[in-house]
C-alpha cells in the first residue's frame, strides 16, 4: 500500500484534485493500493503499514506546509521509499538540513540529467512540467540527479531510499513515478 500525502492547505482542499489525484491514478494503474493522507494528521508510525510514500505538490500559492514542518518529523525515522514531488521535495530538503529560496518556474522546461540514475529518464535531457515558487538546496551529502536552468530538479539521499523531484512527473513523466513504485516492491 502506498500512502499518498497531501501537503495542501487543508484536508480535501480543491488542490487535491489537481495534485494528489493524478499521482494516485498512476499508483492505481501500476496495480498498487493507496491511501489518501493529509499531512497534518499523519501519525508518526503510519509508514510502518505502507510499502512506499509519495508526498505530492500543492497549488502554486499554497506554501502553508512550510510553516508546519513539524508534521513531517516522521520522515526522520521512516525506513521505506519516499518520493517527494515539488512541495514534497521542499519538505525532504527542509527536514534533512537543506534549504529553500525563492525560485519560480511555470510550464514546460528543459531538465538536464547531471547524474544518471534509474529514476531519471535515460536521455541526457528531457522536458518536464514545472509549477513552483521556491527552489531547493539539498541537504548535505544528498546527490543531485538533474537540474533546469533555474534550479536543482532531482535529488536523492544516498543512505535511504528518499527521492525528490521539483518537476511534476505526473504530467508527461509518469515513468519517474512508475520506477519509484517498482522500488517499493522491495
Amino acid at each position: 500500500m502506498i500512502i499518498v500525502v497531501d501537503p495542501g492547505i487543508r484536508e480535501e482542499s480543491l488542490g487535491r484534485d489537481e495534485f494528489v489525484n493524478p499521482v494516485a491514478r498512476i499508483v492505481e494503474r501500476c496495480g498498487h493500493t493507496w491511501k489518501y493522507q493529509h499531512y497534518a494528521s499523519m501519525q508518526d508510525h503510519e509508514w510502518t503499514h505502507a510499502s512506499g510514500i509519495i508526498i505530492c505538490g500543492t497549488a502554486l500559492k499554497d506554501n502553508g506546509f512550510l510553516e508546519h514542518l513539524e508534521h513531517f518529523s516522521w520522515l526522520r525515522d521512516c525506513e521505506i521509499p519516499v518520493l517527494g514531488i515539488c512541495a514534497g521535495m521542499q519538505v525532504l530538503c527542509m527536514i534533512f538540513g537543506g534549504s529553500i529560496r525563492p525560485g519560480c518556474e511555470i510550464g514546460m522546461t528543459d531538465v538536464k540529467v547531471t547524474s544518471p540514475h534509474p529514476f531519471m529518464p535515460k536521455s541526457s535531457s528531457f522536458k518536464a512540467y514545472q509549477l513552483h515558487s521556491h527552489s531547493c538546496l539539498p541537504p548535505p551529502g544528498w546527490e543531485r540527479l538533474a537540474e533546469s536552468a533555474m534550479c536543482i530538479q532531482a535529488v536523492r539521499d544516498p543512505k535511504r531510499p528518499f527521492f525528490g523531484v521539483m518537476f511534476h512527473p505526473e504530467v508527461r513523466n509518469d515513468r519517474v513515478i512508475e520506477v519509484f513504485l517498482e522500488s517499493c516492491n522491495g
Binding site: D17, E18, P22, L60, K61, V171
Partner: peptide, 21 residues
C-alpha cells in the same frame, strides 16, 4: 501554464480540478 502565470502575477490562487482526471 499561461493562466497559472497570470494568476501568479496577480497574486491569485489557481485551481484546475479536472487536471489529468
Amino acid at each position: 501554464s499561461r493562466i497559472q502565470r497570470i494568476c501568479h502575477a496577480l497574486g491569485l490562487w489557481c485551481f484546475n480540478p479536472l487536471w489529468y482526471t
